[in-house]
Computed example of a mutant assay.
Amino acid sequence: MTRSLAITRLRLTDFRNYTRAELALDARPVALAGPNGAGKTNLLEAVSMLSPGRGLRRAKLDSLRRAGNGETAPAWGVAATIARAGETHEITTGVAPEAPNRRIVKIDGTNAPAADLTALIPMVWLTPAQDRLFMGPPGDRRRFLDRLTLAAAPDHARNASTYEKAMRERQRLLDDNVFDPSWLGALEARMAESGAAMAAARARTLSRLAEQIAASPDTAFPTAALALDGALEEAALAGETPETIAESFTRKLAEARNRDAAAGRALSGPHRSDLRVTHREKDAPAAQCSTGEQKALLTGLILAQARALAADHGIGPIVLLDEAAAHLDPDRRAALIAELNDLGAQAWLTGVESRLFEAFTTDAQMFRVETGEITPG
């Protein structure tokens, strides 16, 4: 198969437990084996910083600086050479000593917004922190869905930020008993416009996932039936335009001012939506499935998203799987590796033991990670 997107060189400077680290790579999947705490996940986190947002741990930027022996590095940096469809790009990101909470991104030597990374390096990931996604609060599933949405819609983060800011300002007025209709109306219009855009993007993501799941009936992973619990998203899935959704939401926000003032928060909107996942073969909500079944459902969703991104971009995305193989039985582990190979994605996988990656045979680059030291093999 052809792998048309790959990280061919990765360089870390004062990132987490690495003072300096460098990996020279080809386009094949990358398997990182080593004991817990050695720095395997830190490498995946560094790769995840080549996408918009705060990476797979959602960490604060200043917490990524190397710390130890009572000292903290003044800055951190991640640099990568990207081979994409026959072209080469240089990506650097990090923080400067004078601004440890402001991220800098450069693409081919030019400053760029982090959102520009979405189109250049489509990326998805799965981490152990997501294992209880179906058992956790709705906010966890919203963040999961929004991460998947952001991979295909660079404006999604900006719309979400606009919505949250307008919602906070509206609530501050309501808390202070300031019921100025012009002021509130302007904020509610901003909430409605950005909220409708968020809902439409989420609905598109759900539809693309459903299409990919339906197109892969022979996968070894259980089939997930997906639904969105949220009035705006349900309207978008029903075919309503963002403009119509925004108009309706604006009216609802105006009608709910007294209720939201009494509650101390907005009681409706995309900030309260939920992703519903059902194990189709068992006709059971994911939350009622076994731990192994939930992990398999989640893995299947990530693979569906990877296929959707491959279809949208014409290239397989970067796929980060932290400790994913260890929680799968041997048959599903082999199936996962087969699907990654068929996808043509450069996958990055971690595990305590190298035997977890035996199904790759020679189709992977194997590295051993020991207390911040990386060696081939």
Rank of each mutant, 00 (worst) to 15 (best):
M1Y: 11
M1G: 14
R3H: 03
R3T: 14
I7K: 03
R9K: 13
T19Q: 13
T19I: 12
L23T: 09
A24P: 12
L25S: 00
R28N: 11
L32P: 02
G34K: 08
G39C: 04
N42K: 04
N42P: 02
N42V: 12
E45R: 07
A46W: 00
G53T: 04
R54Q: 13
R57S: 08
D62N: 10
R65L: 12
G70P: 07
A73C: 10
A79K: 09
E87N: 14
E90S: 13
A96K: 15
P97G: 06
E98A: 10
R103P: 00
I104C: 15
A112E: 09
P113I: 06
D131M: 04
L133A: 01
F134P: 03
F134Q: 01
M135D: 12
R143I: 10
L145T: 00
L148C: 07
T149L: 10
L150Y: 09
P154V: 00
D155Q: 11
D155R: 08
N159L: 08
N159Q: 14
R170F: 02
Q171S: 09
L174H: 01
A186W: 09
L187M: 06
G195R: 01
A197W: 04
S207I: 05
E211P: 01
Q212L: 06
Q212E: 10
I213G: 01
A220V: 03
F221R: 05
L226S: 05
A235I: 05
A236K: 00
T241H: 03
E243S: 12
A246D: 02
F249L: 12
K252V: 14
E255I: 11
N258W: 09
D260N: 06
A261H: 14
G264V: 08
G264P: 15
A266C: 15
S268H: 09
D274S: 02
D274K: 15
L275Y: 05
V277K: 02
A287S: 14
C289N: 12
S290I: 04
T291N: 09
A296K: 09
L297W: 01
L301C: 15
L303Q: 03
A306I: 09
A306F: 03
R307A: 11
A311T: 13
A311K: 08
L320Y: 02
D322Q: 00
A324K: 07
A326N: 02
D329C: 12
D331E: 10
A334V: 06
L336M: 05
L336D: 04
L336T: 03
E339N: 05
D342Q: 10
A345E: 08
T350V: 11
G351T: 05
F357Q: 00
F357K: 00
F357W: 02
A364L: 04
R368Q: 11
E370G: 08
I374Y: 06
I374G: 10
P376W: 12
